[in-house]
């Protein structure tokens, strides 16, 4: 890292005292110090600490009697953890896929010189301002097996309609997908729309003069140049999926049974309600590992891309 800021570190100023000059040089570093301390302790120190705990037999209180990889072995022998991971795979895949498909589709439509575009965009995005707990509460009500959607359809004349996903252990995870997609797809739309707006209109004109049809322009020219947007969307959505906790908590509390558990939910209940701190720590370290598994390749390709200009 070169010190390439605006400031050359040797400013030769007369008299006025070396002290002030010293202070001026130290001020920037001093200003960063509180944050540096917070980040060092709060992010890296605590991460390390959790790592240590995951190798101990801690239960209700931290204990430092080390048990090696026992907690990890227990974790992967735990049916509930495995369900949580399977659920995360299903949820993560469907959530990311649906958000991308819907977001990208709506962005392309919105980019066709739409009247009242601002209003429509505002509507697509407002769910993001809501808490996941609110979202979960609402969808829990809408999907309520007796009084919700089912009753509505019956009232509207579709009497054979049945919708019990919320209480069906095999289907409950999909209800969470629905609510999450409702909340986050507008966000992908905003990212794609910003990306589309970043394209030089002359490029589209050039393609039209070249004779390309509108679908072809989108497939061959516009979407390929959306690659960075696509990857950063996947990144953010995957991040949301891994951290998802509030939504499950509010909609199903992980139920029925633990059919809609996600790792974040598992971690919470084992650590804070069941007093299995060691196991909880191990599960949180696994969540970190999942995140790194997608973050590291992403950053790697980003950095390499930057270097290649």
């Amino acid at each position: 890292m070169a010190h390439s800021g605006v400031v050359s570190e040797t400013t030769s100023q007369p008299a006025r005292g070396r002290l002030t000059q010293r202070l001026q040089q130290w001020l920037p570093k001093l200003a960063l110090a509180p944050t540096a301390a917070m980040a060092l302790v709060g992010i890296y120190g605590f991460m390390f600490w959790t790592g240590v705990l995951s190798f101990t037999g801690s239960t209700f209180l931290p204990s430092y009697e080390f048990v090696g990889f026992d907690q990890y072995v227990r974790l992967f022998g735990n049916a509930r953890w495995l369900t949580a991971c399977t659920n995360l795979a299903i949820f993560g895949f469907l959530f990311i896929f649906c958000c991308l498909a819907i977001g990208c589709f709506l962005a392309i439509l919105l980019d066709q010189r739409i009247r009242n575009e601002g209003v429509i965009r505002t509507i697509y995005l407002y769910p993001l301002a809501l808490s996941m707990i609110v979202t979960g509460t609402v969808w829990q009500w809408i999907l309520n097996p007796s009084l919700g959607l089912e009753k509505l359809m019956h009232d509207w004349g579709w009497t054979s309609f049945q919708f019990d996903w919320l209480t069906n252990p095999n289907m409950v995870i999909y209800t969470i997908v629905i609510a999450a997609v409702w909340q986050a797809s507008g966000f992908v739309m905003a990212l794609f729309l910003a990306g589309l707006r970043g394209i030089d209109p002359a490029i589209i004109n050039a393609a039209r003069v070249d004779g390309a049809s509108l679908p072809r322009i989108y497939l061959r020219i516009v979407l390929p140049s959306m690659r960075p947007v696509f990857f950063s969307s996947v990144m953010v959505l995957a991040h949301i999926a891994i951290k998802s906790f509030d939504l499950v908590m509010a909609m199903t509390s992980g139920g029925p049974g633990y059919a809609s558990d996600l790792p974040a939910m598992f971690m919470y209940s084992f650590t804070f309600t069941r007093g299995q701190m060691g196991l909880g720590a191990a599960s949180s370290i696994m969540m970190l590992a999942m995140l790194l598994a997608i973050l590291v390749p992403y950053l790697y390709s980003e950095l390499r891309g930057q270097r290649n200009g």
Binding site: A202, A206, A207, V209, D210, G211, R220, I221, P224
Partner: peptide, 29 residues
């Protein structure tokens, strides 16, 4: 339509297709 006019155009911003190579850019039309 533009494609039916048999016209070629060069733009101030060049408007090259960013994801295609030079060869593909020239060959696209």
């Amino acid at each position: 339509e533009p494609k039916d006019r048999d016209i070629a155009m060069v733009f101030q911003s060049y408007a090259l297709y960013p994801t295609m190579t030079v060869r593909e850019n020239i060959a696209f039309g």
